[in-house]
Amino acid sequence: MSLAVVTGAARGIGRAVAERLATRHSLLLVDMSPAVHETAARLGAAAVRADVTEPEGIAAIVAAVDGASEAPALLVNNAGITRDALIHKMEEADFRAVVRVNLGGTYALTEALASRIVDGGSVVNLSSRAQLGNVGQFNYAVSKTGVVGCTRAFALAHAPRLRVNAVAPGFVESEMTGAMPAHVRERVVNGVPLSRAGQPQDIAEAVAWLGSKEAGYVTGQVLYVCGGRSFG
């Protein structure tokens, strides 16, 4: 089997992606949390604790890829953070931190690993439906809009050798959304045409498809997985 590298893999969407890909790839899981080792052990995967915004972290990931027995065929850039606030209350440090991780980390790791991914391989980036605009998520929306631009630029730069696409999740069940006040969560879910929150596995299926040969003529695209709430 070829190698798939998944960042932000300790929990949530990243863990679901790793579980889904484990049937067709060997795995290198990346996260800053020590919980990544638990996920990796359960899946029989390799793991590295690394910060994708730091040169030392990128170097550690590259070293792990170079030390693997299989060449990488898929990179999933899922690592990301949120630091929500209304725009007039947002601290500049929080704006910069979110952009640095969500966009900067995606750029840095893709740039570092692109030449190592096998011909015909794929990169899948995690954007968000929030890039269309969410109140209280100015920094997050900016960063995820940047991921879309990064995806399309890399798709052109690395064609025809590699495909580069993005998945844009909508409202997905997670530790963060689970902590929302019940009335806020209900209002959001009621605004979803499919009348339910997404599950991490919904996103994992989209990532797996874009990273597969079945999507072999798809590059530079953004796939919204949002229950139909891709506007407004």
Score class of each variant (00 low, 15 high):
Thr39Ile: 04
Val172Trp: 00
Lys144Val: 07
Val101Ser: 03
Gly232Pro: 08
Leu3Asn: 04
Val189Ala: 11
Asn190Pro: 02
Gly67Glu: 09
Ser69Ile: 14
Arg152Lys: 13
Phe138Trp: 11
Glu70Thr: 14
Gly133Trp: 08
Phe154Ser: 04
Arg161Tyr: 09
Thr82Ile: 13
Val5Phe: 04
Gln131Asp: 13
Phe95Glu: 06
Thr145Gln: 08
Glu38Asn: 11
Asn78Gln: 12
Val62Leu: 08
Ala97Gly: 09
Thr106Val: 08
Gly14Asp: 00
Asn190Met: 09
Val52Asn: 00
Val123Gly: 05
Leu113Lys: 02
Arg229Thr: 09
Gln221Ile: 04
Ala206His: 07
Ile203Phe: 03
Ala130Cys: 11
Val6Cys: 04
Met180Phe: 14
Ala18Asn: 01
Val118Asp: 03
Gly57Lys: 02
Asp84Met: 06
Asn78Gly: 07
Leu210Glu: 01
Ala63Val: 08
Asp51Phe: 08
Gln137Val: 07
Gly67Pro: 05
Ala35Pro: 00
Glu56Cys: 06
Phe171Thr: 03
Leu29Lys: 01
Phe171Trp: 15
Asp84Asn: 12
His37Phe: 14
Glu19Gly: 11
Arg11Phe: 09
Ala35Asp: 13
Leu3Thr: 06
Ser143Glu: 02
Ile58Gln: 02
Pro55Val: 13
Ala47Gln: 03
Ala10Val: 03
